[in-house]
Design a protein around this nucleic acid. Structure first.
Length: 803
RNA sequence: GCGCCUGUGGUGAAAUUGGCAGACACGCUGGAUUUAGGUUCCAGUCCGAAAGGGUGCAGGUUCAAGUCCUGUCAGGCGCACCA
């Protein structure tokens, strides 16, 4: 019988579906296991080879868990709102609903062809009104708790998408999605107060099992810093508050800098002598894109504000105030005290404008030549009561002094900004808010959810910065839920991150129309036990959803403070040339071609065998054959199977070791070495020319999470057991059977291998050494030398050190 | 600048965490089966005749280092005028 993947894979996919064996049970006495992968955006390109890497990995885990007696939830859905769909729809004059429906159908068939054991009965779609009803509901709760607010502010505006972007979506000054220029625009935007959760988002990382690199990146992004706010008075009698992480250097402040957007400029415009100069600088700064403004190593620019100066609160010294765009309005107080001796940016600025540089921390080179920024070794000088203190102590002492005199206070700051939550596009969740001329901003009553997107012909983005929904007057004009008078709907929609911030909750109870999920379902399934996804979402989706979940926890909707107990991250699959796969590079591989030619089982094995799951791995088409060959060799075992139900004694140790190796490696995401172990095992089995039914049964179970279709076929053809292979109990290894009676140990002389001995596995030091010294090969190197030291590592080696 | 990761045969990679470097696979070489081979099977395959030498480079710790420490080079990822 020849291995033919197509009929085998079709047959079992259908049989599993009909039997519904991958459906999670709503109630069960079994322990629960919730495995989650990042649900895909159903793009027009279809499935990418990167998708199956993640999906197959957790499929293997999920299948193993089922076989270990867990009630497993491994769901799938569609993160289907988003710009590519909308743009495609506009270009081709097809409604986004229709585009989405088609793309979903394609993705679905592609995923089903891979034999991923998703529970398709719980499929969700973020664009489904019965789904986004609850996205809108969560928004209303955020609004009611003061965490959603509308604010006029400078935002990132993508010139191509014609839409605002969150800070997280701007990469190197360009749009993360389309790589077009991002400029600053002042707009009224809906914001979510993620900053309110900054500290908890850091602290609670302690409660979860995430890779260190993920935690580090989130902590970095949140960017906590500790320091002090210091109040400077101005010669006009106003207060200018700055934030600094180096209050110890306050005596070295020789000038101040405020950002071009700082409100003080407006306030003091009457006394500023060089108003025009300042104003034109402000204008120039506002025209710059984020990229221009933050470009590295650029020349500092600025203007000295004439007619007003600041007074250093600790020494009464009067110092000039500058306006410069190297100070950001969005961080701290938008104003700084400049200590050029100990800050490189201030130093650059001071040098350019000829400002004094006063050393207050000793220990570096000449501060006139370069700023000395090392906090660890310096000692304070020129600083009155701080003189002689270490930087660390001086910081504490200064804060104490400031608090005592009321001129400042300890302060913690975060780089994290609030989340810009509105988008000026059609294909997103409408924000359920009404603007009433009498009542102001009015939330839609929950009973009116979902607020559906209007079905219209045209939804092109506008250049004016208004959402396309604004043009749909029938929809926009409404009545105020509060006073009943005429009012207008909010026309911005939510970003794509909205629907994905809570989708894992919906899977727990996907058809509930009373709540986003029932209390019972949430209590049973929470938290997600294992979430695998890409590193690229670390400071986007992963952070956003942790924020939403914490909020939902606070208002009593969900039972756990963290959504995901364990997070792992797969590496990217690169093109065969080692570069990122992309159309322009011409190195894209279509997963359909592999599935057609070699079969889903080979495709799955191959992607898992590629390399370390957590690191990037280049595609290597030549090794697909190796996986296919392995599956064929396995399939052919059927023809040499003998009817014995037992495992032959000489196979016992290799068998148990393979069970242990595969079981452990799967848990540690070491799929490549788990497969290597299966390959080694089949080599051992085929060396003997035959296999017993008992051996083939164990092998089939071990293989089935990786290559479920062929395993199922062999299970039935070989009559290896009742029911499906996919439901067979996972084998348990016997530690005592993993070891052979005799082992080989290495004998080294001075660290060099000189002989290998076959000895009883439990041999003790004295016996091992004695036998080692008897070896003729070893004696050559001992001859005429004195033994200085003898080392014995049990079961491994003997090392004799001679002189 | 800050944070993180990687560097091992011709190739993708392993190495029980300090104990035989190169498992497993691809490729290649030779042989067998076959009318044929882009099939299957068997043998070989880090370099070197050997002694020996080999994990980006230079040191160090250790009986023993791919693994630990110091320095350095190269590549990648994230953040970045965050005071």
């Amino acid at each position: 019988m020849k291995y033919e993947h197509k009929p085998i894979e079709q047959r079992w996919q259908q049989a599993w579906e009909e039997a519904g064996i991958y459906h999670a049970e709503a109630h069960s006495d079994k322990p629960k296991f919730y495995a989650l992968i990042e649900f895909p955006y159903p793009s027009g390109q279809g499935l990418h080879v990167g998708h199956p890497r993640s999906y197959t990995a957790l499929d293997i885990i999920s299948r193993k868990r089922r076989m270990q007696g867990y009630n497993v939830l491994y769901p799938i859905g569609w993160d289907a709102f988003g710009l590519p769909t909308e743009n495609f729809a506009i270009k081709n004059h097809i409604h986004p609903i229709e585009v989405t429906r088609k793309n979903v159908a394609r993705f679905k068939s592609q995923l089903q062809a891979l034999g991923i054991s998703f529970d398709w009965s719980r499929e969700v779609n973020t664009t489904d009104p019965s789904y986004y009803k609850w996205t809108q509901w969560i928004f209303l709760q955020l609004y009611k708790h003061g965490l959603a607010y509308k604010k006029e502010m400078a935002v990132n505006w993508c010139t191509s998408c014609k839409c605002v972007l969150a800070n997280e979506e701007v990469v190197n000054g360009v749009c993360e999605r389309c790589h077009s220029e991002v400029v600053r625009r002042v707009k009224s935007q809906w914001m979510l107060k993620i900053t309110e959760y900054a500290q908890r988002l850091i602290d609670d990382l302690e409660m979860v099992d995430y890779p260190d690199r993920v935690k580090a990146q989130q902590i970095n992004w949140i960017g906590r810093s500790t320091g002090a706010e210091v109040d400077f008075t101005t010669t006009t009698g106003d207060t200018l508050t700055v934030y600094t992480t180096r209050p110890d250097t306050l005596f070295g402040a020789t000038y101040m800098v405020i950002s071009p957007e700082h409100p003080m400029i407006e306030k003091l415009s009457g006394v500023i002598e060089n108003r025009e100069e300042v104003r034109s600088y402000q204008e120039a700064a506002s025209k710059k894109s984020d990229f221009e403004r933050t470009e590295m190593a650029k020349e500092k620019t600025g203007v000295c504000i004439k007619g007003v100066s600041a007074v250093n609160p600790v020494n009464g010294r009067e110092i000039p105030i500058f306006v410069s765009d190297y100070v950001l309005v969005s961080y701290g107080t938008g104003a700084i005290m400049a200590v050029p001796a100990h800050d490189t940016r201030d130093w650059d600025f001071a040098k350019k404008f000829g400002l004094p540089i006063i050393e207050v921390v000793q220990g570096g080179e000449d501060v006139q030549q370069a700023a000395f920024t090392d906090c660890a070794t310096g000692v304070l000088v020129n600083s009155d009561f701080l003189n002689g203190l270490s930087v660390e102590k001086a910081k504490a002492r200064m804060i104490e002094e400031l608090e005592k005199t009321g001129k400042g206070r300890a302060k913690v700051n975060y780089k994290l900004r609030d989340w810009v939550f509105s988008r000026q596009r059609y294909w997103g969740e409408p924000i359920p808010i009404v603007h009433c001329p009498c009542c102001g901003t009015v939330p839609l009553p929950e009973t009116e959810l979902p607020l559906k997107l209007p079905e219209v012909e045209s939804y092109e983005p506008t250049d004016t910065g208004e959402s396309p929904l604004a043009a749909m007057t029938d929809w926009v004009n409404t009545t105020c839920p509060k006073c009943g008078g005429p009012a207008k709907r909010e026309t911005d929609t939510m970003p794509q991150w909205a629907g994905s911030s809570w989708y894992f909750l919906r899977y727990m109870d996907p058809h509930n129309d009373q709540a986003l999920a029932s209390k019972e379902a949430l209590a049973y399934w929470s938290p997600v036990d294992w979430y695998n996804g890409g590193m690229e979402h670390t400071t986007l989706h992963l952070l956003y959803s942790r924020f939403w979940h914490k909020f939902l926890y606070d208002i009593g909707v969900v039972p756990t403070p963290e959504p995901y107990a364990k997070r792992t991250s797969h590496g990217m699959i690169l093109g065969e040339n080692g570069e990122k796969m992309s159309k322009s590079r011409g190195n894209v591989v279509n997963p359909d071609d592999i599935v057609n030619e070699y079969g889903a089982d080979t495709m799955r094995m191959f992607e898992m065998f590629l390399g370390d799951f957590e690191n990037a791995a280049p595609w290597k088409s030549s090794s697909i054959k190796g996986c296919r060959r392995f599956i064929e060799r396995y399939f052919n075992l059927l023809s040499v199977m003998t009817p014995e139900e037992t495992i032959r004694p000489e196979m016992e140790a290799v068998m148990h070791r393979a069970i242990k190796k595969v079981s452990d490696d799967v848990e540690g995401l070491k799929f490549n070495t788990a497969i290597a172990a299966l390959m080694a095992l089949i080599n051992d089995l085929t060396d003997t020319g035959s296999v017993t039914r008992g051996e083939l049964r164990v092998f089939t179970i071990l293989l089935s999470p990786f290559a479920p279709h062929v395993a199922e076929e062999v299970w039935h053809e070989g009559k290896l057991g009742e029911g499906f292979a996919a439901q067979a109990p996972w084998p348990v290894y016997d530690e005592s059977k993993c070891v052979e009676d005799t082992i080989e140990i290495v004998v080294q002389v001075n660290g060099k291998v000189r002989d290998k001995l076959t000895v009883p596995a439990d041999i003790e030091q004295a016996a091992a050494l004695e036998q080692a010294k008897k070896s003729a090969k070893v004696q050559v190197f001992l001859d005429g030398k004195t033994i200085v030291k003898e080392i014995y590592i049990k079961g491994k080696l003997v090392n004799i050190v001679v002189k």
